[in-house]
Design a protein around this nucleic acid. Structure first.
Lengths: 221, 221
DNA sequence: TCGTCATTCAATTATTCTGTTGAATGACGA
DNA sequence: TCGTCATTCAACAGAATAATTGAATGACGA
């Protein structure tokens, strides 16, 4: 244990990152920080935890290079270190979603007792679209898009995000959605768009919920 | 803590996956399993660990849905549960690479010092092979080679590099690959070949990435 | 049916992690 | 310079995890 070859040392570094992701509260903190920078106090209030506890978890995340700290007046504002954190979060979730039968069960229960913390709600999106303030993209594969999508949305499958973004107005905000709140594709789309300099957010949930809410659905021509 | 809403329960499931990735030995096991299915005994031998220890870590990985078990005669063969595991591994690594200063130091100090030449990308290698310009050697042990290798590659385990090079055309460039971007064997192979007067480079990554990219894989006869 | 043997379980100890408390730090505004 | 207040540190108890040992399982082959 004391004598480590470089290979083992590397694995230890990787393990530090994964271990930092290995706690429910820290994951929740990461999702909060994905919405924007937060002070320790704000995070603590949001998550209903003692401030000192949040502070310590933030230290752990910082040691792993997952979050960055920046002083802003009296506050220290924490934010995600970079976009790669979001994709790591998304792929951990992808493993959990595909493999843990229990997740399905929990997710179903979750739809009934949802709380408020998704970036853009359906109602909010309707207002934004009515006022022409955002571009809405549907990142699902074309066949799913053809079966019904948010009126006015553009179909931009994940693989085409980068090409599409080059012709898009970089100053206009993009709202991405896919299959639902636990679908990774819209996370990845947002991460990709942000790293390309665009302003992007996720829709709170996805197509099935939109249709279930009785909102208009457009079919392919 | 005892009363969990569905959201927290969900984060707990995600945390189980991340926690399972949060141990150097388990990460090493995952890299091994990315090469192909392995028995407990084979893994233990490969990593120099007690069998019971490996078995317990495998249970942890299985609980997290990261590996799958399948009985094969007397042995239980473990393998990665699906492709999403590899991408989770890769994104954890990406976070570590970008953010941990120590990783940079380790990588520069150990890996890059041994390989100042640009590694060969997969696309580049395909062109070089198509045009017959290079000899490709797979420096992994024969058992891993047998489970799948780059078509046309020759299996030259590390210990046989010197003997093999004496019968090889010294004017022909060699491309070596092994288990992946962090596998040391191809670095050492390239270093050995260069010191023997050959022209040698590494493939940028290794076998699991080649297979994951959907490129053809050849099995042993 | 029985022995073999790869694998798993159970129990132990050492280590690490978690959450709480209260005190210390240190930047800002007066 | 000093008080205020967001944040961090230090220290503790309780819980979880890791590695080791030896015994128990249970599927295969004879």
């Amino acid at each position: 244990m004391s004598i480590r070859n470089p290979k083992q040392a590397l694995y230890e570094q990787f393990a530090i990152v994964a271990k930092a992701l290995g706690h429910p509260l820290r994951l929740e903190m990461i999702e909060q920080l994905a919405q924007g920078a937060r002070s320790v106090e704000a995070l603590a209030a949001k998550l209903g935890q003692p401030i000192a506890n949040i502070s310590q978890h933030l230290q752990a995340l910082r040691r792993a290079g997952i979050v960055a700290a920046e002083r802003d007046g009296k506050f220290v504002r924490y934010s995600l270190a970079d976009e790669s954190v979001l994709s790591a979060f998304a792929s951990v979730r992808a493993v959990a979603e595909r493999r843990l039968a229990e997740v399905d069960r929990i997710v179903r229960g979750y739809f009934e007792a949802r709380d408020q913390m998704r970036p853009v709600s359906r109602d909010e999106l309707q207002v934004l679209m009515r006022d022409g303030l955002v571009t809405v993209i549907d990142v699902r594969p074309p066949d799913e898009f053809a079966l019904g999508h948010v009126p006015g949305a553009i179909n931009v499958p994940l693989g085409e995000i980068e090409a599409w973004s080059q012709n898009a107005d970089a100053g206009r905000e993009v709202v991405a959605y896919c299959r639902g709140p636990w679908c990774v594709m819209s996370f990845e789309a947002v991460a990709a768009l942000r790293s390309l300099g665009h302003s992007a957010r996720r829709l709170e949930d996805g197509m099935p919920e939109w249709k279930a809410a009785g909102l208009p659905v457009e079919m392919a021509a």
